[in-house]
Design a binder for these strands. Structure first.
Lengths: 149, 149
DNA sequence: GGGTGATTGACAGCATACTGATAATCAGTA
DNA sequence: TACTGATTATCAGTATGCTGTCAATCACCC
């Protein structure tokens, strides 16, 4: 089983989420990896609509609805009607959201290091390169491909 | 964002599941990656209980309940009372389950290759080695660590 | 032989993810 | 301008995964 990339993909994701949760909770915060990604992308691209934000981090449009709901409910972002397109809603990170991102950053960084702590520095760098390359090569194969700005 | 192992982990898992689904569906079957793993492990270890099966493939005990329910409902495995431990249920793969595994195997193999099609053969081998090493190094960090027989 | 701690399977509840469908709207064309 | 096709957000439904909790049961130790 452990020689199948698909099985290891699931396992690595499982570990990544657990480590993220553990570090972020230990630092006193309550934020999922998905919520962190969404807020980070929103800070870099203020004013986008939900579909565009989803494309920036390869989320499914449907999933993004729920994520945005929960973040808005906690006051970490705002959702206002788009000035010209009446279908869309414009998203903006709030001061509370940006502040939370700043304060949680050290925990997130620690989590990223722990995930690859089984590898030495050279291996970790090579692993990251190959993982990025594999993901980019298959970008179009998921329902929600990455769509840069 | 693409330099964070956590983000790439989620993305690679997302792609892996999509590719698995696409190949398996194209071959005319209806089986999720998780169901495939469970059936495969059960065939290799007939008669185990749910908790043991979960440990063999690093599933959460709670998740395994639902997976087993759906597989039993489709007649791919059976769930009988354990002969000595009245808490446990003994799981067995059925002939239909084993037959399905055999017939779906080529599609699963194709999916595994597609997932790493962005890498050449040497890179894919090294990627698999590093991924396996990273996962093993962090095995204890998830709620559901891998527990070999 | 009785009490204690661990284990098994289940439950409710939350958060991703996907499929397929829909209504509202927009944009470009006939 | 009317029509067509694409796009935005949402909905119902299914399947993972996790947290925490619970009752039933087991295994071990005093």
């Amino acid at each position: 089983m452990s020689d199948k990339p698909g099985f290891l993909a699931r396992r690595f994701q499982q570990i990544a989420v657990a480590v993220f949760h553990a570090e972020v909770a230990a630092a006193g915060f309550d934020l999922t990896p998905v919520q962190y990604s969404a807020l980070t992308a929103l800070r870099a691209h203020p004013g986008v609509d939900q579909a565009t934000l989803a494309g920036l981090i390869a989320f499914d449009r449907t999933t993004m609805g729920g994520v945005v709901d929960r973040l808005a409910q906690r006051g970490l972002l705002t959702r206002k009607p788009h000035p010209t397109d009446r279908r869309a809603r414009t998203l903006e990170i709030t001061a509370a959201g940006a502040d939370l991102l700043d304060r949680v950053e050290p925990a997130v960084q620690r989590a990223q290091e722990i995930m690859v702590s089984g590898l030495d520095a050279a291996e970790a760098a090579e692993f990251l390169r190959l993982l990025r390359k594999a993901v980019e090569g298959c970008n179009a194969l998921s329902r929600a491909p990455l769509t840069p700005a």
